[in-house]
Nucleic acid binder design. Sequence first.
DNA 1: GGCCAGGCGCGTA
DNA 2: TACGCGCATGGC
Length: 286
Amino acid sequence: MTEFLALNYDLAATLASGQAFRWRFVDGGWEGVVAGRWVRLRQEAGRIRAEAAEPVGDWAWLRHYLQLDVNIGKIFETFPQDEPMQSSVQSCAGLRLLRQEPWECLASFICSSTKQIVQIQQIIALLCRRFGDPVAVPEGHEPVHSFPSFGRMAGLAESDLRECKLGFRAPYLLNSARKLRDGEVDLSALHGVALDEARAQLLQLPGVGLKIADCVLLFGYGFQQAFPVDVWIMRALRQLYFPKRRVKLPRLRRFSQTHFGPHSGYAQQYLFHYMRTKGRAVGPRL
DNA sequence: GGCCAGGCGCGTA
DNA sequence: TACGCGCATGGC
């Protein structure tokens, strides 16, 4: 058990914002698996309390995952001073970007195409339960599994994945796992290389296009200018920046690269959250 | 029952 | 370079 100082950090918004898909809200706490360890997090006044199933000496892995050392105020200062961006920030100023493990992030987003967030969570829960390894949990807690490694995934049959509701994404995930196993792409080599080079590597994987690549670059590696454009962001850019004009996707992508500054990835996440929550109901349809 | 979901790959022009 | 379509599956 430990406590972190966490000012301007909205844990619930962050963990439920469609970046990561394994967090569950149970009895006032958020339960998940980070770096192979079960954890439960609770938001308190200006703090986050964390507990693990086994003694932890150094909590750096969790600080890193939650990105607790990021100065979000400094990032806000780099955002454009326009109405849509300011409204997005005001609607949820404690929203953060997580720093996930690249493989889990990649696999999760390969599962995400034309799926709602709830369904993505279901698919990933099935994958973990069936093919992950048990992790230590508190006494009496229901079993929890790790996210299956790409080595494990590579040895499965396509039908194994289809049984986890992957549908047409099954061969994408399977063949991406096999490419990683065979060393055709090395996820560990993408830290610190140029954004375009890292993106080009990810685009070699089947089922990975620009959108999914940028999700992995942003949520898994922290490339600050990766800007995934999905249907929500496309809607946001069209409604908020180009109302009454039919602007096509390539132009929206170009706009996103220049308009939002050096931390455009954060701007993207704020826009995404804003679009999904404004006009009450969180969920599909406006 | 029709439409949509944190898209991608492929064929076509 | 830029469409259009099919691909599984489930929620509303």
